[in-house]
Design a protein around this nucleic acid. Sequence first.
RNA 1: CGGGGUGUAGCGCAGCCUGGUAGCGCGCCUGCCUUGGGCGCAGGAGGCCCCCGGUUCAAAUCCGGGCGCCCCGACCA
Length: 483
Amino acid sequence: MAGGMADEKLPKRSEDFSEWYNQLVLKAQLADYAPVRGCMIVRPYGWALWENIQQALDQRFKATGHQNVAFPLLIPRSFIDKEKHHVEGFSPELAVVTIGGGEELAEPLVIRPTSETIIGHMWSKWIQSYRDLPVLMNQWNSVVRWELRTKLFLRTLEFYWQEGHTAHATREEAEFETRQMLDTYTDFAVNDAAIPVIPGRKSDSEKFAGADTTYSLEAMMGDRKALQFCTSHFLGQNFSQAFEVRYLDQNGELQHCWTTSWGLSTRVIGAIIMVHGDDQGLVLPPKLAPYQAVIVPIFKTDEEKTAVLDTARKLKAELAKANIRVTLDERDGQSPGWKFNDWEMRGVPLRVELGPKDVAKQAAVLARRDRPGKEGKVSVPIADLAATVERLLEEIQQALHDKALAFRKSNTHDAKTYEDLKRAVENGFAFSFWCGSAECEAKIKEETRATMRCIPLEQPGGSGACVSCGQLATERAIFGRAY
RNA sequence: CGGGGUGUAGCGCAGCCUGGUAGCGCGCCUGCCUUGGGCGCAGGAGGCCCCCGGUUCAAAUCCGGGCGCCCCGACCA
């Protein structure tokens, strides 16, 4: 049920992946449907997860010299029209405000679908000299794009994200920035989200409206479909020309800036769910989990209750002191078994079971979320608890990543012929030589429903026949069905 | 926008064909009992039957119109 506890079993992930996902989001209390079609309410548990994601990224952004800013939600309609590709790309999905204070507005305002235009407008005022560069900004906000088909976290009309925007004196600097931020995202994906990703370049048809080059990280979900984890765009001088963002260089000559933008959204929560989750529910990577450990007390009599809770509270304090995010489930009226299932639904990496038997021998049972059933349980002396929890959290973090990587590898196929490709995308990714033509790309999309996800930056080298037209190709691309 | 479905308690649904006291499961509240993998018993609260109109002594039910939502297609960082 939408608002209640984890009171029922999920559909089997292997039988109905889509419905498994929908119910998991509701039952783990990550989010709920809003009264407006296609909009999402992020609940406390989901937002806590997002806050950890924000923190992990924000630290990295600051470490590379970026500063946070806040630009307005409303943008003059005319701004969107200034960059040719941008307007073509975004017009169909804009939400437009035409009335304010009961009066028809002289100029309609769009609710930002992204902020390149308004930022460009302001930069043209702020940037005058090469001494003002580079400008390195980021903002955490929400944007609106009027999508037709929506799904919680993966595609909603309004979504939360960060958008980084930078301006540079030279093409090289801007290109470096674009790639540096892609590397930053990769580091976050692999080490924090435990999601293996493929960094690559997008085709012309898939790139951001207004970009010269779009890079993305592509990941394989549990149903073998692809999900774009984030993007980083080299915008060339497209926006600086549209908005007259210029500076005087050392020689006193007026130059247009080179700009970039890069973003990552709450969609990554969807990725975490679809990569790590299982039939029991959510499985969270320890680095991002709101609670890394939950203590479930077990008792019958009042004396037992006193002794168990007393010890449980001490354990909680001890774990918290070791900087482990821990909670103690003191809820009355729910059986331990119920609580086990509830916290498994919510993906807590480690459960600490503490009952009278454990207190008697000064031990506690640790159960790993990534290893269901008895195999994942060990009894640990209380004296070693904090150290063991720390070690296990690291092990789980690594195990989640390794499992996801093995899954992706075993479902990625070197497809040499068109027949190979057709078969491969039925069940994963095809990694194939591609001549780079839009015709071949469109034909593959039309006939297999798979799209060109990216041209991986890391190439095995050599050359071969294009999987579609047979002409000599020097690069291999990832094809797959995508979200 | 096209095709299909659906709207009744917080959630999931039955009732509608054949008009006559609005029901079931889960959840919620109270009490007792239980608690090492989704305890049990008893009592209780909760309704604009999507909206507007029509037919009728009488409409959740029949008729007409509207609206919302879901799925499929088209579209889509």
